[in-house]
Computed example of a mutant assay.
Amino acid sequence: MKKIVFITLSLLLAVSFWNCEKDDICASGTPVTPRVIIEFYDAADPSVLKNVTNLGVIAPTFSEGKAFNNVSKIEVPLRTTADVTTLNFIQNGSDTNTTNDNVDEITFNYQRVDEYISRACGFKTLFYLNDTNPIELTVDGNNWIQSIEVLQPNIETENEVHVKIYF
Results as ranks from 00 to 15, higher is better:
123 F>R: 09
119 R>F: 14
84 V>S: 13
114 D>W: 04
131 D>R: 10
28 S>C: 10
24 D>W: 12
63 S>R: 13
109 N>Q: 05
39 E>D: 14
132 T>M: 07
111 Q>H: 01
68 F>L: 00
106 I>E: 01
136 E>G: 02
102 N>H: 07
119 R>H: 10
66 K>W: 08
82 A>E: 12
48 V>E: 13
30 T>N: 08
21 E>V: 05
84 V>L: 10
54 N>S: 14
134 P>G: 03
89 F>T: 02
31 P>Q: 12
14 A>M: 14
99 T>C: 03
90 I>G: 00
83 D>H: 01
11 L>F: 12
35 R>F: 05
67 A>M: 04
79 R>W: 06
17 F>I: 13
22 K>N: 11
134 P>C: 08
113 V>S: 11
58 I>D: 08
42 D>M: 08
135 I>W: 00
74 I>L: 06
137 L>F: 06
62 F>V: 02
93 G>D: 11
46 P>G: 02
67 A>W: 04
121 C>D: 01
23 D>T: 12
127 F>Q: 00
81 T>C: 08
9 L>N: 04
36 V>W: 00
12 L>Q: 06
119 R>W: 09
129 L>T: 01
35 R>K: 15
92 N>T: 00
32 V>G: 13
79 R>S: 15
106 I>S: 02
111 Q>V: 02
50 K>G: 03
113 V>C: 02
20 C>L: 15
42 D>T: 02
24 D>P: 04
42 D>V: 07
68 F>M: 02
79 R>C: 11
23 D>I: 06
85 T>M: 08
133 N>L: 12
43 A>G: 01
50 K>D: 09
96 T>M: 06
89 F>Y: 10
51 N>E: 10
50 K>W: 06
85 T>V: 04
59 A>E: 14
123 F>K: 07
29 G>R: 09
69 N>G: 07
37 I>Q: 12
19 N>Y: 14
120 A>I: 12
46 P>L: 06
65 G>Y: 06
138 T>Q: 12
63 S>V: 14
11 L>S: 15
49 L>V: 03
59 A>Q: 10
50 K>P: 03
53 T>E: 15
101 D>M: 06
12 L>W: 05
123 F>G: 00
65 G>K: 06
69 N>W: 04
106 I>N: 01
89 F>P: 03
124 K>C: 01
72 S>R: 03
13 L>N: 10
50 K>N: 06
74 I>K: 01
100 N>M: 09
9 L>F: 15
20 C>F: 10
97 N>C: 04
55 L>T: 02
12 L>D: 07
76 V>H: 02
49 L>Q: 10
79 R>K: 13
44 A>C: 05
58 I>R: 07
138 T>Y: 11
102 N>V: 15
32 V>E: 14
20 C>H: 12
48 V>L: 15
112 R>V: 03
93 G>C: 07
121 C>K: 03
84 V>W: 00
29 G>C: 11
139 V>A: 12
110 Y>H: 05
127 F>G: 00
14 A>D: 01
79 R>Q: 12
53 T>N: 14
132 T>Y: 08
124 K>L: 09
129 L>R: 01
65 G>R: 00
113 V>W: 00
86 T>W: 03
58 I>Y: 07
